[in-house]
Computed example of a mutant assay.
Amino acid sequence: MTADLSADRVPGPHEDEPHSGGFYSRLNWLRAGVLGANDGIVSTAGIVMGVAGATDDTTTIAIAGIAGLVAGALSMAAGEYVSVSTQRDSELALLAKERRELAEEPEEELAELAGLYVEKGLSEQLALQVAEELTAHDALAAHAETELGIDPDDLTNPWHAAGASMVAFTLGALLPLLTITLTPPEARIWITLGAVVLALAITGWSSARLSYGSTRAAVVRNVLGGAVAMAVTYGVGSVVDTQVG
């Protein structure tokens, strides 16, 4: 009996799910971008709302918001660069160690790889056969992925990570900055609050969808956290204005 390979065949329950490593790598980048934008929204909204609580001068609010945007974007980029560089250095060191061990102790490394497959549930005979075939194809990739969880051909680039974080933060920060500086003074607080709450709901929903988590819980947490941050900073700005005045 032959398998039905017709184009209109209904796919199985897992056939439409992505399984490539490249997909999950892109998914992580997308999730990081959403979180970076979220940070930009919250931090910049807190700054401009705090200044708006102390003064109605649009220029002052804009200067504070731009300073916060630039400082936050550079901080995000630098932090991401340092973090990813450290991770990449560790991965390169582990790969160098694995290359050395493969060159000096090939039989021991083969036995170790087979043992790992046995731990995953394969029989000893099948585990050894799989280990031999994968080693013959690409010994380093087989050991790196199974032992270390590293893909030697897909190491994270710290410059890409830094650039992505800077862009995501900047895009998020522009929303509250432009909203509060381009709207009429008498309505800017409420319009900015509404725009930020809507944006945080979108980023919360997006991050939950990308992480396969609860969208409702993520949206509520995100919106409440941002609203509290804006309320506190606005209150601080109002108190400062009263004391100075």
Rank of each mutant, 00 (worst) to 15 (best):
E101P: 04
E101L: 15
E104W: 05
P106L: 14
A111G: 07
A111R: 13
A114K: 06
G115P: 11
G115M: 06
G115L: 02
Y117P: 00
V118A: 11
G121V: 00
L122M: 15
Q125E: 15
L128F: 12
E133C: 05
L134M: 15
H137D: 14
H137K: 14
D138N: 15
D138S: 13
A139Y: 07
G149C: 06
I150G: 09
L155W: 06
L155H: 11
H160C: 01
G163I: 10
F169L: 08
F169A: 08
T170C: 05
A173W: 01
L175E: 05
P176V: 03
P176D: 00
T181R: 01
P185Q: 04
P185F: 02
A187G: 00
R188F: 05
W190L: 08
I191W: 11
T192D: 02
G194C: 05
G194S: 03
G204W: 10
S206K: 01
S207T: 11
S207F: 02
A208E: 06
R209M: 11
G213D: 06
G213L: 00
S214G: 09
R216V: 06
R216K: 05
R216A: 07
V220A: 10
N222F: 02
L224Y: 06
G226M: 11
A227T: 14
T233F: 07
